[in-house]
Computed example of a mutant assay.
Amino acid sequence: MSLDTPQAETRLERLTAHEARERLEHERASRLAQLQAIEEAGPDVEEQVRSAQKDTIQRVLTQVEASFDRVQDGSFGICRGCSRPIPVERLEILPYTQFCVPCQRSAA
């Protein structure tokens, strides 16, 4: 993003810090609820499946926590691959993402 980009245009491209924190807090709460549900699951759930689910959720929670740091330092919503703004639509779906879609594909 250019330093001479008008403020109104910037707002359309990026979430505010408040909006980002709200989305991340919602994501964190959802993942913590999932972890609790896994912990409370009865013996019907195989331990290997339970462990894999917990690992996946923990990985996402780590990404969510790192996103709070990016909100704090002002780098939230900026792709770590190309340094361009990540589209708001992508951040609405994956508020903890570090990459735009093209860079995510390249990283995978």
Rank of each mutant, 00 (worst) to 15 (best):
R80Y: 06
L32D: 03
R11S: 15
R90G: 06
R50V: 07
P85D: 03
V60R: 12
E25L: 03
S106E: 14
F99Y: 09
D55C: 00
H18P: 00
H18Y: 11
R31T: 08
C103E: 11
A107M: 11
C82I: 06
H18L: 14
C103T: 11
V64R: 01
Q53V: 00
P95V: 07
I86S: 05
R28N: 04
R31L: 11
Q34T: 07
L3H: 02
V45D: 00
D69G: 07
E27R: 04
T62F: 06
G81L: 03
L91G: 07
A8T: 14
I86L: 01
S2F: 03
D73V: 12
C79T: 10
R84Q: 13
S30D: 01
G77S: 01
H18R: 13
T97H: 01
I86T: 08
E65Q: 03
V60G: 02
Q48H: 03
G74A: 01
C103Y: 07
G42V: 02
I57V: 15
P87Y: 04
E25Q: 04
F99H: 08
F76I: 12
A108N: 11
P87S: 05
P6T: 13
R50N: 05
R50E: 04
Q98P: 02
K54F: 09
F99W: 06
I78C: 11
S106Q: 14
V71S: 08
G77A: 10
E19R: 06
A8C: 13
I86W: 02
D44F: 08
A29Q: 04
R105P: 10
C79E: 09
Q72W: 01
E39R: 13
G81E: 01
D4G: 10
R84T: 10
G81R: 04
L61A: 08
T97C: 11
G81Y: 03
Q36Y: 13
L24V: 03
A41M: 08
E9S: 13
T97D: 00
D4C: 06
D4S: 09
R70S: 07
D73T: 08
D4A: 12
H18N: 13
P43N: 08
E46T: 05
E13D: 09
E9N: 10
I38A: 14
S30E: 05
Q53W: 06
L32R: 13
D55W: 11
R28C: 11
A33N: 12
Q104D: 03
G74S: 11
M1V: 14
T56Q: 15
Q63W: 11
G81N: 06
R90F: 03
F68W: 09
Y96Q: 05
D4R: 04
V49L: 13
P102L: 07
A107T: 10
T62G: 10
P95I: 01
A107S: 02
Q48Y: 05
H18T: 15
R14Y: 02
R84D: 07
A29L: 06
R50T: 05
L61N: 02
P85R: 02
P95M: 10
H18A: 15
E19L: 09
